[in-house]
Amino acid sequence: MVKDRGHPNRLGIWGWFGGGSWGPDRYLYSLHRVTGLGLLLYFLLHIVVTSSRALGQGAWEESMARVSGPVFMLGEYLVFVAFAFHAINGVRLLFAELGYGIGKPIEPIYPYRTCLDDQRPWALGALVLIAALIVVGALDFFVWH
């Protein structure tokens, strides 16, 4: 009865990115999702493009020429950045989602300590590593070449 007359009030996709209490882990979750989708899009196209190597040198060089230039260069760098984030944060998630690095069940005494507090050093460490990879990647992409 209530369902018929009431307002559904679901946040919808907006709730994936915002809502709740806007903790840092929410942003990591959003970024992990966005980078995963970005990598997937690149990867699907990548399979088609790199398949041309089976057709010999001419076909390969032709398809590589099609995906060259500054725009693709920047695109590839973004793929690298997405990889850096998704891979390192993915390792963190791999452990956390299997229950490692999130502490043990405790007695909840105010102010409450949660598994997010136990994750904090790992998340920070991951971010530092990601930042370092992104910088090294940028040097390799744009400076050392």
Binding site: E76, F80, F83, A87, G90, V91, L94, E97, L98, V136, G137, L139, D140, F141, W144, H145
Partner: peptide, 24 residues
């Protein structure tokens, strides 16, 4: 899905080093 993530980590890590950290 998790196991695949671990495999990708190793292989794609190598792939990225080959393709993108070539100067380093």
């Amino acid at each position: 899905h998790l196991a695949a993530g671990a495999i990708i980590l190793v292989l794609l890590g190598l792939h990225m080093v080959i393709m993108h950290l070539d100067a380093l």
